[in-house]
């Protein structure tokens, strides 16, 4: 059995802003083994990026972990100094950001920016680093890599730049690759190409991946497990098939309904979830999804639902599940 690579236990994280405390993460737990591919889905502001950044300690200083633990590859991330953290970033764990247009420094060449991370974490000299960079560019499917090394980011298309970002992330063969909405900012056709590339790379290199996205459709053919986040909480967690064919949380069901189905007609392709996301400055006391939930019950407004196990490794926090149990229990009595 493979090793436990990432173990997040009951993480709580808040941003301390002038307007007040933003409770961005509430009691997040995630376990990943080597070679796992985990999908994190959820709408904007649900805390997907914050979760990912907290693993790399990339958050601004206003964001502080106020509870729980993060263990990665034998390191207790919570207690690590910035100096030790630097040795991990870009080396054992690396990240691809959402917007490739702005994620590369405009004033340095592609080659410079790839070599930088290679030279930082290995003892390759300049020439070897350049060779490695060239190799990486071919790996991520960029033609004429030697020529590209000398180009500046603005000379490349969005898809190309995202490939360069992937190359940078892969440069030191990380144990864990975090992809924070790597395709959101790209055209649909390019999106498909980048996803294909990521699936390819996963198979070739065998690293663990955290795939963050708004879109359940994207994670379907890539991930083994999916965590559905809502308002800083993981509301449902489980294997891909369970989430897709046996969703339990009302929010997950809503998300699944909103996936465009190609077979259907144009007008009912998208069923967006009604209502606005919660205000993270004043989160509701009970289930955060309550104001938008069609099945909302009185208890949902008052109390936070607990996790219920549905099947092996499939958890969901929804009062409907408790209701089922309660009613069954009631019958027994």
């Amino acid at each position: 059995m493979s090793e436990l690579l990432l173990n997040i236990q009951n993480e709580r994280l808040s941003f301390f802003t002038p307007a007040g405390e933003v409770k961005a993460l509430n009691d997040i737990s995630i376990q990943m083994y080597e070679g796992d591919v985990l999908g994190i889905v959820g709408e904007s502001g649900s805390g997907k990026s914050v979760t990912a950044y907290s693993i790399m300690q990339l958050l601004p200083h206003t964001g502080r972990i106020i509870g729980g633990t993060i263990d990665f590859n034998g390191h207790r991330i919570n207690d690590m100094t910035e100096q030790n953290m630097r040795k991990i970033r870009g080396n054992e764990v690396s990240i691809i950001f959402q917007d490739p247009m702005t994620s590369l420094n405009p004033v340095y060449t592609i080659g410079n920016q790839i070599c930088e991370v290679i030279k930082l974490h290995t003892n390759k000299n300049k020439k070897q680093a350049l060779e490695r960079a060239e190799e990486l560019l071919s790996l991520v499917g960029i033609n004429e890599p030697r020529k590209r090394l000398k180009q500046y980011p603005h000379e490349l298309s969005g898809g190309m730049r995202q490939r360069v970002m992937i190359a940078i992330a892969l440069a030191c063969e990380p144990k864990l690759l975090i992809a924070d909405e790597p395709t959101t900012a790209l055209d649909v056709t390019i999106q498909a190409q980048i996803l294909e590339l990521m699936i390819d790379l996963k198979e070739q290199l065998g690293m663990s991946i955290i795939m963050i996205t708004h879109d359940l459709g994207i994670v379907a053919n890539m991930c083994q497990k999916i965590a559905v986040m809502y308002a800083g909480k993981i509301v449902e967690y489980g294997p891909v098939d369970e989430i897709f064919y046996n969703p339990q949380h009302e929010y997950t069901k809503g998300l699944l309904r909103s996936i465009p189905k190609l077979s259907e007609k144009e007008h009912n392709r998208l069923v967006p979830i009604e209502g606005t996301p919660v205000d993270m400055l004043n989160p509701p006391k009970g289930c955060p999804f309550a104001p938008r939930c069609d099945s909302c019950m009185k208890i949902c407004l008052r109390e936070m639902p607990q996790y219920t196990t549905i099947n092996d490794g499939h958890l969901s926090a929804c009062w409907l599940l408790q209701k089922k149990e309660f009613m069954q229990g009631g019958e027994e009595n």
Partner: peptide
């Protein structure tokens, strides 16, 4: 659970109750 559940807790919440949550 730290509190006692009641059948009435599982009655559907009405619209006003839900809206009162959204500031």
């Amino acid at each position: 659970l730290s509190f006692q559940l009641d059948v009435s807790d599982f009655l559907p919440a009405n619209k006003e109750e839900k809206e009162s949550l959204v500031i």
